[in-house]
Amino acid sequence: MTSIMIDMFLLCLLVFIAVMILRTSKLIAVIVMSGGYSLTSAAIFVNLDAVDVAFTEAAVGAGISTVLFLAAMSFLPAEEKVSSKSGSRYSWMLIASIVCVAAGALLVLAALDLPAFGDPNAPAQLHVAPRYLEESGTLLHIPNVVTTVLASYRGFDTLGETIVVFTAGLGVLLLLAGATRTRRPHAADHTSQPKAVSRVGGKTKRGVAK
């Protein structure tokens, strides 16, 4: 009973934060509130006994994402631009709310077909999950089943995930580092010069910019 009440409170908090995010136009407030949104989701995951997911959500969603958004925000003005034409804005709002209600109704309709929460006869509990739960502690001697599924039974998927993270990092580095290099005007002229010269040039320029 208390678990359901905590869940309801947290879900209401999520809706409240989402509405607040929609209503404010200050970008820094939006970023901080989306961090709060992630933290509230993490609390919901803890209440569902999904501690590993909650841990990831708190560390990635509430922690690192907020910092990265703040770093990216310094490219942008502090306030969101509000469109002046109020007539077109209201017609867009009407279309958006119709789409939202329709998509929400479809999701609720689909959710009615799902097995009840925690149902032991749900298809997801009958396929390979019993084998993982039985083997992990006794055969592999690893009590945390999440880790065994992630790293051992589904090791190939996690290899793919790691490569995805690596590729994403490379992509951002290529985009941003490429942009900084082309902006330096004298970098192309000194291709025959030793590398140290252009580095010193870059440093002094950065020093001036501060």
């Binding site: 590993d52 909650a54 560390a59 990635v60 690893i142 945390n144 992630l150 790293a151």
Partner: peptide, 10 residues
């Protein structure tokens, strides 16, 4: 990570 919540990503 083997014994409690956690692992490489976190």
């Amino acid at each position: 990570g083997d014994f409690g919540p956690g692992g490489g990503f976190q």
